[in-house]
Every structure is written in structure tokens, then in C-alpha cells.
Amino acid sequence: MEIPDLPDLAARIRLDVLEMIHAAGSGHPGGSLSAVEILVHLFFREMRAGAGRDRFILSKGHAAPALYAVMAARGMLPRGELSSLRRLGSRLQGHPDMHRLPGLDSSTGSLGQGFAAAVGLARGLRLSGSSARVYCLLGDGELQEGAVWEAAAGAAHAVLGNIVAIVDCNGVQLDGPVDSIKRQKPASERWHAWGWHAIELDGHSFESLEEAFREARSVSMPVALCARTVKGRGVSFMEGSCAWHGRCPDASELERARAEIGAGP
């Protein structure tokens, strides 16, 4: 596989995300844009494909537009299909549905459940002697689900060295700033206290991502990557705003975003 220039690719994904949501008339731009570099890194540089492939579960299923756009860029679905997001009969459901879209390792959308299933998947892969690794992307608001911490304790107790949780710490949830609703800090210390190897990083820097995932591969316990990100990253009027958690850009907003992102065709 020829690896494209990653920042350019990330810009194109951002534009895809906004065009998809605009065409659908609804969706979640904020938490999709904050996860773009993480997803690009995972699908283009980190995860092994083919036999014994690594698995990925998008526990924050509302970032589905970003996942679909990255999968399209990776050749896992036709790019022309992206505009079918959220339409009746589409393979691109509002939240990922593994039975509709091949290539998804799990359906997700109900917060907390994807992560706990990822722990079970990691447990199962280890039991079957596979060397495949499980990667799971969560939101920081999602950490307010108690079931996350049940499963985090389970993974630590079982010393699952084949799971990496990436937390998209964009600091904003549907109702407002995470800090004002129910704080999830200190981020890495919480995971550490639960028995995970925790790493803090810049979730928009490919260098930082590369370094963190390299460290993750070097330890034999569950790893949490607490990725500092910006909700709505790349579009000034969406950045840091809870209003854009689940709002659809209209035509003029899409044009302004397009100019800011500056992606090529």
C-alpha cells in the first residue's frame, strides 16, 4: 500500500465528513473531526490487515462518518457511497452496523458497550492463540458510563496485553464541556489506577501518535492512550463547541468549512 501524505489525507477526510453529514441532514461533526488523525493513523500505519488481522471497534459510534471516510480512503468501501450516510437501506448506518458493512469488527453506538465488547474480543483472541491486537476508540464523555470501568478492571485483572484503548479527549460532550458536567480528569492517572499502562499524547500529531503506539506495542498489559484533541478540529466555528456535537452544517457553513480545511479534490 502506498501511504499518502497523512496531513493531506486528514484534511480530505475532514471534508468528506462534513459533506457526508451535510448530505445526510444530520450527524455528529464535532466528535468525528476530533478523531480524524487517530483513525488515519490506525488504518494507514498501525493495524495489520490480512490473516490474523488486528481488530478495531469504534466504541464512540457517533464518529461513524470519520470511520467510513477513512475506510473509503483505505479502499474498504467505494468513496462514492459516502453520500449514502444515514439513508434508508444504506450500508452506512448512523452508527456502525457490522451486518450491513463488511470490514466492521463490531456494531456500536450505545456508549460503553463497544469498549466492553473489545475487552471480550481481546480475551477471546488470546484464548484462541491469536496474535491479533484489538484497538478501541472511546470518547471522553463516554468514560462517564460505569460499564467502561467494569470492563477496564476486567482487562487489567486478566492482564490483556493485546488491547489498546484510545480515548479521544476532546473535552466536550453533547451538553457542554466534560469538565463542567462530570470531570474525567486526571485522564491517564485514572487508567493507571485501574491497572492500565496509560500514555498521554497529542491526538492531532502523527508524530505523537506514532510514538505512543510504538510504546503501546512494547508493554504486555492493557494500554490506554489518552489523546488530547479538539472537538470540531479544523473548522474554527466548530472547534470546542458543544453546539456542533450533533448539528448538521448548512450550505454556507459547509463552504466556510471547506475554505478553512483547504483540502484538494
Binding site: F115, A116, A117, G120, L121, R123, G124, A147, A153
Partner: peptide, 26 residues
């Protein structure tokens, strides 16, 4: 013993992990 997992007083985790184990072919 290798096929038994007691997840503790965590029923939500138990069901979700079971889903994950099913995804792994169990």
C-alpha cells in the same frame, strides 16, 4: 479452567464481554 471467566459483580461487562468472545468465534 481456561474457559471460565468470573468477571466479578459486573453484569454489564459480563454480557458485553460475552459479545466480544462471540466475535472471536467462541
Amino acid at each position: 479452567p481456561a474457559r471460565h471467566f468470573n468477571v466479578g459483580v459486573s453484569e454489564q461487562e459480563m454480557i458485553s464481554e460475552a459479545a466480544g468472545l462471540a466475535l472471536a468465534g467462541f
